[in-house]
Amino acid sequence: MKFYSDSSVLNFCWEQVAVSFWQRYPNPFAKHVLSEDVISRKVIDQELYSKRLLRKTNKMTNWVKKFSGGESFTYIVEESIVDPIRKLITTYTRNIAMQHIVSVEEKVVYKQDPENKDMVVCERKAWISSPLRFGASGPVCSFVHKRFKKNSLKATEGFRHVLESMFSRNDQSPSMNIPGQMYMSKEMMTEGAKKATEYAMKIKPLIPKT
């Protein structure tokens, strides 16, 4: 078994992180995430319990492929609890395919920085284990551990990217702290992209042809 833990900071308030949490896919840092569906969702005692099913590509080295029968994707279950009173999001993620080769379980807690309410601390822990025998589990765990470390950084980068595109960092007006005003529909984003394109078209003639 291999254990991994890290901690990172998101320079956004907890409400913004909570809103983006559900909209963090797709993003350019998570091209390996192919699909995402809600499997169950309920509110218990003011807390939101959700379960989502994700399908991800599974890029393995050739020697791991030999064990896996060449499967090119895997399924991940993400359980989460959002507690808006204590300002906590807790997630637990595990693979539900290919456990005969390797199991990765990950727990992440997003909590408001106790010293700065405009920041969220993200604490990540992961456990990697393999039931393989004859000395194969060690190298498999080491390989997956190394890849997990890389992907964990990418996951945080992807989350930051989504947060930045949803909530302009330049706009620090107090209204940004009101959750109701933070929701950005797909239409709003499309509208923004359209305006940017129109603007780019307008300034194009100013650029001399080379």
């Binding site: 559900w22 995402e36 109701g180």
Partner: peptide, 26 residues
């Protein structure tokens, strides 16, 4: 969505949920 058949239903639900989550739940 996992299935193209569910895509439209997922988008409609997600839009409703995201609005509810930020404007009501939080």
């Amino acid at each position: 969505s996992i299935s193209p058949e569910c895509q439209e239903l997922k988008e409609k639900y997600d839009a409703c949920f995201n609005k509810w989550f930020s404007e009501k739940f939080l």
